Simulated scan of single mutants.
Amino acid sequence: MKLEYQKKVASLNRQKKHGASTEAIEKTKATVSHLHTRYIVDMQSMDSTVSEINRLRDEQLYPKLVVLVDGIATMWEAMKEQHENQYKIVTALRYLDMSQSTKETSDQHHERTVQLWHVVQEWHSQCGKLMTHQRLYIKALNNWLNLNLIPVDTNLKEKVSSPQRSRSPPIQSLLHAWGDYLDNLSDELARTAISSFAAVVHTIMQQQVEELKLRDKCEDTRKELARRTQQFEDWNKKYMQKRTPPDEMDPERAQDKDIVEERKSAVEVVKQRLEEDEEAYQNQGIQVREKSLTSMRTQLPELFRVMFNFSSEASNTYRKLRSIAHPPKPNANS
C-alpha cells in the first residue's frame, strides 16, 4: 500500500507540474487522501498486532524458556551425578570375584541380554534426538526472533506515530547464547560410546545364542542316548531270555556276543557324541563368560566415563545459560 500511495503522490505532483485540470487534480488528491487514511489505519492495526506479539514474546514465551533452561540445567546436573556414580560402580566391578557365579547362560540371562541391547539402542537413538531437537528448536526460535525484530518503516511523507520497540529484548541474548552453546556442545563422542557398547552387547548376545544352541543339542543327544539305552536293555533282556539257559558249547554263543556288541556299539556311538557335545557346550560357555566379563569390565567404565564428561559439559553449558536467563538484579543503592 505504501508503494501505491507513493505512486499516487508522484502522479499528483506530475499533474500539478504539467497543469492538469482541476477536476483531475482533485480526483487524484481524493485518492491520495484515501490511501493515506487507509495506510494510517493499517499501520495502527499492525502496530497493535506487533505490540501484542511482543507482549506475548516477553511475558509468555520468554518466562517459559527461562523455566525450560532451569529444568534442563537441573536435569544435566542430575545426569552428571548419576553418570559419575555409575562410573565409580563399574570401575569397582573390575575387581569383583565372579568365580563362584553361574557359568552357563540361562534362557533368562539371554533374555536380559537382549533386553539390554534394545535399551542401549534406544538410549543411542534418544540421545541423538535430544540434541538434534534442541538445536532445531532454538534455531527456529532465533530465525523467528530475527524476523520479529526487523523494524517497520512507518514513514510516508510525514512521521506516523508508532510504539517505540525495544531493540534488545531479554529473549534475544538468551536465544543467541543458547544457539551458540548448543553448536559448541558436541554429542558425537557420547553417541559413539553408546553405539560401541551396543555392538559389544550384540556380540555377547550372538555368542549366547550359539551357547544355547549347543545346550539344546546336548539335551537332544542326551534324550537320544536314554532312548537307545532303554531300547538296548529291553532288547537284550528279551534276547537273553530266549537263549536261556546258556550253553557254553553252543556254536551260536559267539554269534550272540557279536549281536550284543553291535547293538551296544550303537549306544556307545551316541554316548561318545554326547560327550563331545557336552565338551563343546562347556567350552562355548567358558568362552562366552570370559569374553562377556572382559568386554563389560573394559567397555562399561569407558562408556560411563564418556557420558560423565558429556553430561558435565552439558551441565556447564546450561549453568551459563541459567546465568543469562537470571541476570543479577541492579543494586537499588547504587
Results as ranks from 00 to 15, higher is better:
residue 12 L to E: 04
residue 14 R to M: 14
residue 15 Q to N: 07
residue 15 Q to R: 11
residue 15 Q to L: 14
residue 16 K to I: 11
residue 21 S to H: 10
residue 27 K to F: 00
residue 29 K to A: 12
residue 41 V to D: 15
residue 46 M to P: 05
residue 48 S to D: 10
residue 49 T to P: 01
residue 56 L to V: 15
residue 63 P to T: 04
residue 64 K to T: 12
residue 64 K to Y: 12
residue 66 V to F: 03
residue 69 V to H: 02
residue 73 A to Y: 01
residue 74 T to W: 00
residue 75 M to S: 09
residue 76 W to S: 03
residue 79 M to F: 15
residue 80 K to I: 00
residue 81 E to G: 02
residue 84 E to I: 03
residue 87 Y to S: 13
residue 92 A to K: 11
residue 92 A to N: 05
residue 93 L to W: 04
residue 93 L to P: 02
residue 94 R to K: 15
residue 98 M to L: 12
residue 110 H to A: 10
residue 117 W to M: 07
residue 117 W to E: 13
residue 134 Q to H: 10
residue 135 R to G: 08
residue 136 L to R: 11
residue 140 A to R: 09
residue 149 L to A: 01
residue 150 I to S: 13
residue 153 D to S: 12
residue 161 S to R: 14
residue 169 P to N: 05
residue 169 P to G: 01
residue 170 P to N: 03
residue 181 Y to L: 08
residue 182 L to N: 03
residue 183 D to S: 07
residue 192 T to G: 00
residue 193 A to F: 02
residue 194 I to H: 00
residue 196 S to W: 06
residue 198 A to G: 04
residue 198 A to Q: 05
residue 200 V to W: 00
residue 204 I to F: 06
residue 207 Q to I: 00
residue 207 Q to F: 09
residue 208 Q to D: 11
residue 209 V to S: 10
residue 214 L to D: 04
residue 214 L to N: 03
residue 215 R to H: 14
residue 217 K to Y: 07
residue 218 C to P: 00
residue 222 R to Y: 13
residue 225 L to C: 04
residue 228 R to N: 13
residue 231 Q to C: 06
residue 233 E to S: 14
residue 235 W to V: 04
residue 236 N to W: 04
residue 246 P to Y: 10
residue 252 E to V: 12
residue 254 A to D: 05
residue 260 V to C: 00
residue 262 E to S: 07
residue 265 S to P: 00
residue 268 E to Q: 10
residue 276 E to F: 01
residue 276 E to A: 06
residue 277 D to N: 05
residue 280 A to H: 10
residue 287 Q to M: 05
residue 292 S to W: 02
residue 302 E to L: 14
residue 302 E to K: 15
residue 304 F to K: 05
residue 306 V to R: 02
residue 307 M to H: 04
residue 312 S to T: 13
residue 313 E to K: 13
residue 330 P to N: 06
residue 331 N to E: 11
residue 332 A to S: 14
